[in-house]
């Protein structure tokens, strides 16, 4: 990859977040800094409750950090933007709208041209194997199909960066693997800047250029690991010794931290 002089697409500097709750404050994040360069795939892994979703909400300007700053293209970030698409931890499809209406929601809110958006929505749904389900309600879809639809919605306004919060977290292992590989294939084709939160170490290493490993609460960054495995990657990538070394290393980081927390 060539080094660029331009600032990273998205960067966080010393983010801390404290939630004031009854019975003492909860520190969710502690001085988190990371960069998401344009065109790269970054994953964040960490134990449940370590502040991953909090970090994503702050990066998306849905929440303000207690300290620190977020920059987009080098400028401080204040409000959500069309350039950032979000896939939430629970798909968050609106049950009273059809699948197509859900996917078209950004078009309505951003006042994009109707016919073009509709065509794009149909195309995204077709690409995700959801053709024929346009007029169904989310309640009729399986978990995997709902997540696909949620990803289509995030992609509809063609954002420059996609933030995904455990998009496959609630799915069974088979569906999960299938969707990861699908995402890998599509990402290697489009190279859209992406940030993926996951607790699946294999998934993180398989997809990413960079894996950010976080400690248990309060979330701190333990290590930022470059993944230099050759692309295009696929199911066979997991057989490479380098792949297994990387996942072993990450597992060690998280596990050592857990043991320290327990003792």
């Amino acid at each position: 990859m060539t080094e660029t002089i331009s600032p990273p697409m998205l960067s966080a500097r010393n983010l801390s977040k404290v939630y004031p709750v009854r019975g003492g404050d909860i520190q969710a994040l502690d001085k988190v800094s990371l960069d998401v360069p344009e065109g790269s795939f970054v994953s964040i892994v960490g134990a449940s409750g370590c502040g991953k979703s909090t970090l994503l909400r702050i990066l998306a300007a849905l929440e303000q950090p207690s300290a620190g700053q977020v920059f987009r293209d080098g400028r401080p970030l204040a409000t959500p933007s069309r350039e950032v698409g979000i896939v939430f931890q629970e798909h968050v499809l609106l049950p009273w709208l059809t699948v197509l209406e859900n996917v078209m929601m950004p078009a309505e809110l951003y006042k994009l041209p109707r016919e073009e958006s509709r065509a794009r929505a149909q195309e995204l749904l077709a690409m995700s194997g959801l053709s024929g389900f346009e007029d169904r309600r989310p309640g009729d879809l399986s978990g995997g199909m709902k997540q696909r639809a949620a990803i289509c919605r995030a992609l509809l306004p063609d954002p420059r960066v996609l933030l995904m919060d455990e998009p496959f977290g609630a799915l069974d292992a088979l569906t999960r693997e299938e969707l990861s590989l699908e995402m890998l294939r599509i990402w290697e084709r489009d190279r859209k800047t992406a940030l993926l939160i996951t607790h699946d170490i294999n998934e993180a290493v398989l997809l990413s250029d960079t894996v950010v490993v976080m400690s248990p609460r309060p979330g701190r960054i333990l290590e930022i690991i470059r993944i230099d495995l050759p692309r295009p990657r696929g199911p066979d990538t997991e057989l490479l010794p380098a792949f297994r070394e990387l996942t072993h290393h990450i597992r060690g980081l998280i596990f050592a931290q857990r043991q320290r927390a327990a003792s």
Binding site: T79, I86, F88, V92, L94
Partner: peptide
Amino acid sequence: TPTSMLHLMTSMQAGPWQVFRRVRLP
């Protein structure tokens, strides 16, 4: 209204009226 739905709407820069009509009311 679930916070996640409010976040969804805010992330797409929906105004108060749109949030009311498209999410809170349903």
